[in-house]
Amino acid sequence: MSYIMLSYTDLLLASLLLMINGVLSVIFSLGLLKRLVIAVTRMVVQLLLVGSILSWLFAAPSPFWTLLAAFVMVAFAGYEIVSRQDRPLKGFWSAGLGAGSMTVASMVIVLLALTTQIRPDPWYHPQYMIPILGMILGNTMTGVSLGLNTLTNAVRREAGAIEAGLILGMSRHKAMQGVIRQSLRNGLMPLINAMSVMGLVSLPGMMTGQILAGAAPQEAVKYQILIMFLISGATGFGVIISVLGASLRLSDNRHRLRLDRLASGNGK
């Protein structure tokens, strides 16, 4: 494999394109200049930092440091899930269910892929584990946060209809069936949309990266298909656990609707 290496001068040249965004913000008084500068700075610093950390991790693969890196990624993704909820579950449950289901689903699928399909040596080799976990985590996070947000909003909006079913003797599962279905659908929709246009409208980043790095396109495609299957499995698993878990939390064993278990808001 061979690829064309980039210098920092190349990056500097490309960064001039950001000037367009800055000028637009000023001309149209968008008030985005400060946020743009902060976002760009964060992106550059975060990526340079992660590049250095990955180089260090790859140089001497260690299960401890690899798992620590995975833990940090999971923690950030969990925080992101909670912050994306309009009306999260109160207390531990929002983070517990959101981050918990995402972590369980992602880790199970990553371990399955590393031990049965990709099989690096050692199995926890960070060169494989970290990027694959990152891709799966990012997609599962989106699905879980969308699913949970849809459920908590729909349960509040449809409380009268759900309670009407409960009053007439429906079980909580039957009475909440509609909102659960809607939440599962919303959680899985971005993935289904992405898969259906992949290769036609969008060329996925990992596949493009492999091709740029000199891999044969057929090999890059095989990797991409594998990753999409893994992402599908993890997202489906994570969305189902989180939505069903939250629906149980929003009701109780006497089949009551428990809106009192929702926080008043997320400051949005």
Partner: peptide, 10 residues
């Protein structure tokens, strides 16, 4: 059987 003041419909 309970009939609320504002009945809901699913």
């Amino acid at each position: 059987g309970f009939l609320p003041a504002q009945p809901g419909w699913w």
